[in-house]
Design a binder for these strands. Sequence first.
DNA 1: CAGTGGTCTAGACCACACC
DNA 2: GTGTGGTCTAGACCACTGA
Lengths: 245, 245
Amino acid sequence: MQANSQQDESRSPRYYRIYQALLTDIQHGSLKPGDVLPSEMNIAQSHGVAPGTARKAVDMLVDRGWVERQHGKGTFVRRADFSHSLARFFRLTDREGVQLHPKSELLGVREVPGSAKICRHLEVAENSELIEIERVRRVDEMPLLHEVIYLSRARFHPLLDLPPEEWGDLLYPLYEQVCGEVVFRATDTLSAGPAPEGPARHLGLGAGELVIEITRLARGYDERPLEWRLSRGRLDWFHYSFDIR
Amino acid sequence: MQANSQQDESRSPRYYRIYQALLTDIQHGSLKPGDVLPSEMNIAQSHGVAPGTARKAVDMLVDRGWVERQHGKGTFVRRADFSHSLARFFRLTDREGVQLHPKSELLGVREVPGSAKICRHLEVAENSELIEIERVRRVDEMPLLHEVIYLSRARFHPLLDLPPEEWGDLLYPLYEQVCGEVVFRATDTLSAGPAPEGPARHLGLGAGELVIEITRLARGYDERPLEWRLSRGRLDWFHYSFDIR
DNA sequence: CAGTGGTCTAGACCACACC
DNA sequence: GTGTGGTCTAGACCACTGA
């Protein structure tokens, strides 16, 4: 057996091209969250490579968080789970260290013309119709965060017809069930600044008091922006820790 | 050839045991930062496994940031580089987007008895003699951070004899050159709170004004705590962004 | 040139899930 | 049982580094 020329056509390794092909399938939606990938033997045969090469391509997808292996069952496209994302920033455990889950109170759902800044973030035309969602998230009735969320009306208009009592505590499952839009990843940006009057009141603060600001741009599997949000929280609850190097 | 029983003795795979053996060498100092690892063929032979298995062990070290491969030369134990770590938190670029490097002004180096909290973080006996370093870090003369740093006197006493003009802008290279202590990784924790009078003055603020607080616990290759520091910075310079999922 | 890591092959057997 | 992923072998050739 000879390892026949790894560099036929393109300059990249075979496993990398297979990785890209699978990733494209995921990003274009032919492989949806929850779907099973072809088996590694299958991938190897259909690409005409040895099993080890196909495996390495799948390894890359696993390392980068696109798929999950399940021994004996198969490899599946991951569904993102942001339900604990707030715990990154706030002390959300009770005295026994048990994880607490914030409740959401919906303050309003409005159709608004998009500002230049938000439209740019969402990569839609300026003044596009957007949906603005305002809510407060509480733990044990203590207000933790005030959030303003913007979505493209074109993609998310079914939310406008949803009665308030059907909005749960988490938006992303709603996006998926009601609008068929799936959030895969997000970029959070932390900053701090004075709170405008409305948000301050909901947080039990005076206007202009300093709050932590978390802006988030959430994206789908195809990397297109789906949601932009600005969350404001009390500094005295805030806390974030992570490793470097 | 048969794949003869992967599970002789312990239950873990061979590549994992090789990974652990190499990691132990790094953490115990028989492999120091900058040292070259044995070649993959070498590792394979000395552990009596196929090259691919040895390679997988090295892959794990690479993935976890312990070593770096250099094609054609070898695999080397990494030396951590924290010189850009502040850029994670503060806008440290000029108008052209060029990276700026903060200057450090040494305010004081003192021998102090360790408080209970700090001794616990450093994992030394309560009331152990510590070294306290106070400094201000500036960009373009603008004060960015006020820092208080604690080190074990037993390990770092050579710093006490170092004249102020020989302290550069970065402490970690100093630790290595003067004390032989190498920082490999650190945990940063973000919070916010009112600034005491001293730090506030150095930041150009009034006492009690809110500042961002970054506490850091830095560790060596053997995971033992080397340094604990509390940095306070102006909220209006603060900014942090990262991806989730 | 020899030595290193980078890619790849074509198999093997094991452990787990499901029928 | 079959089919999946998990580990492992014993080689091959390629690309890069440095003497």
